[in-house]
Design a protein around this nucleic acid. Structure first.
Lengths: 346, 346
DNA sequence: CCGGTTTACGTGAGCGCTCACGTTTTCGAG
DNA sequence: CTCGAAAACGTGAGCGCTCACGTAAACCGG
């Protein structure tokens, strides 16, 4: 800290060569004999020389700082933690570093923090479940390449996509409930700004339509991201809609909140009310009853995104792709045939 | 991207002043009239000028890049996600950016990735539950200030500490079990490299000793970090030790794994076996039975660490502190009086 | 042993800022 | 009106690298 930093010039002087030759040795570039390369690397080692990423970034005008940003709505949700985990392994192996941005589910914060990241000359950006408008995404893509969008479709020559078919996932959940014999099925949605929530809503409506089942507007409810929020909002909702025998829930966290509400209201799950949710995070299999849920390949999503990003960074001519991953319904205890008489709950 | 970057010189030229004057305006430094400051800021705005953090970092020889590193053993565990959440709010508000490092619970990876981070001239470092040796920590502290250690005690003039009294937490859990009437109490430990695990083991031994209860070496078991690992290792352990009526578990994730093992073995919890664990993450209250657990103020831990770090960055003369947070036992369903006859399990 | 090519190096310049000065202008006291 | 100090602004230099060159040495066939 206090003792002067070791620079490339120090190494050059110690090895009796020019700065450029040291650079060649360090970066494994041609135009240097094997003997001198060895010698330079040894003295660099001895001096404890560590090339400055900052100076490198400046020198090549921000072409590569070996850093990129990863943006998630909230690190608190295991879903995003799993995505991050998929990104991390690749990153660590290739010696990149990631700036983590948590937007608190707020589009304005998302935009502001990403803009702020740009001053650090990041090489690329992975945005998970972006809540921003298309226009803002376009602006960001115009300033940077590549930008990889996870769980959010956006077409742009700089933007790659890793998507899961949200509508299809929800449809499969609704179909499952219909096959169980349910006719009055409600839906708990996510935040209004969430695209996934909207897509899943579309899937719900489509599946209900195809099954020839009616949907009341009051059967759909938006809730906050936290378990408590779903619990709080869910309680009056459940009381107001005793006619429902099944619910499709936006994600497992909210389903857990509803489970608690059901327990307090004396609504048996799946006896009186069946619950099917999305994500398949750890708690889905741990709560009682365990949750029937649409599994999203979270780790895979992160991993594929990171692969695309690093590939595009390695070969700048590479074009971004659109990868579609398929969700898969996992049947557990929270769904069952409605009670014999088909009687409304309560 | 393609269009040239806007630099400070572009702004200077456009505003008809020198580069330095623009710098004064941007950084709110004295020696500039209010009128010109306004004018410069306006033209900077119009040109879309964004000062380069990279160039700034280089220019002041790495005194402040407004970035720091956060190191966690694994982002997959909600515990660390919560700590990160506590760090994030402060960071975002003060416009700092964090490099996230996930070490995969491996000390060698931890060391390697931190060294690699140094080339990016980070201003500071927050290490959560470090698995490294004291000697390696000392080396890192000698290269950087401040370093904030969460959940790991280490004395160094550059290092701040935010600690929780692990031993005391475990003692309170054991005392609770003893008060319930348990006499043969085992312990499920974490990874051998984990300091928390070792501290909690000490607390367990001390509490057992104070209660005048015996401890068999075979009653202690190390397991991996994942739920499955605890489940797999726990099953034979439970079968081999039918004499135990209660278990103190290193953390909630492992307790959930044991719960599953118990269910499959037909061991009623808390009927035949009581479980008390640590952390109080979300799933602790969601599993059945809900877990009696030692609550660790995770968010607070992260927040206090971030506060200390940013304060020390703002005023470099500030000395690092050692903050001790107290754990608190949360009683739930997984602990109870052993069955009447005090009979061994099975 | 000589001209031309390859291989091995060295030399400026510059990336976009900040720092430590230097220079000019303003302005009020004597 | 003069002088000196404070305010307002400008001028190198340099942070630690890389890039595009330039130059000297080694090599090689004729």
């Amino acid at each position: 800290m206090k003792d002067k930093r070791v620079t490339i010039d120090d190494v050059a002087a110690a090895a009796g060569v020019s700065r450029q030759t040291v650079s060649r040795a360090i970066n494994d570039l041609p135009g240097i004999s094997i003997a001198t390369r060895e010698r330079i690397l040894t003295t660099a080692q001895q001096l404890g020389y560590r090339p400055s990423g900052i100076a490198r970034g400046l020198a090549n005008a921000g072409q590569r700082t070996r850093t990129f940003g990863v943006v998630v709505p909230t690190i608190d949700n295991e879903f995003y933690a799993a995505v991050l985990h998929g990104i991390k392994d690749l990153t660590s192996a290739r010696d990149y570093h990631v700036f983590l941005v948590d937007t608190n589910e707020d589009p304005a914060t998302e935009y502001r923090r990403i803009q702020s990241l740009f001053s650090l000359w990041i090489d690329g950006l992975i945005i998970c479940s972006s809540r921003m408008e298309d226009q803002q995404l376009a602006e960001i893509c115009s300033q940077l390449r590549p930008v990889i969008l996870l769980n959010r479709e956006f077409i742009h020559p700089h933007a790659g996509n890793v998507l899961i078919d949200d509508a299809e996932g929800t449809e499969s959940a609704v179909r499952h409930l219909v096959e169980c014999g349910h006719k009055r099925i409600g839906m708990i949605l996510g935040m209004p700004v969430s695209r996934s929530s909207e897509n899943r809503r579309q899937g719900y409506l489509r599946a209900m339509h195809q099954a020839g089942l009616p949907v009341e507007p009051g059967w759909m409810l938006h809730t906050g991201a936290q378990l408590d929020a779903a619990y709080t909002a869910g309680k009056p909702y459940l009381q107001a809609h005793p006619e429902l025998t099944a619910l499709v829930v936006y994600n497992d966290v909210r389903a857990a909140g509803l489970l608690r509400a059901c327990a307090e209201l004396g609504i048996a799950v799946p006896g009186r009310l069946s619950l099917a949710s999305h994500d398949n995070i750890t708690l889905a299999s741990l709560v009682t009853p365990s949750l029937t849920t649409v599994d999203i390949p979270k780790y895979e999503m992160g991993r594929r995104g990171a692969v695309m990003m690093l590939d595009m960074l390695t070969d700048r001519r590479l074009q971004p792709e659109t990868i579609r991953l398929t969700p898969r319904l996992v049947e557990r205890e929270s769904t069952a045939t409605p009670n014999a008489k088909g009687a409304p709950i309560q």
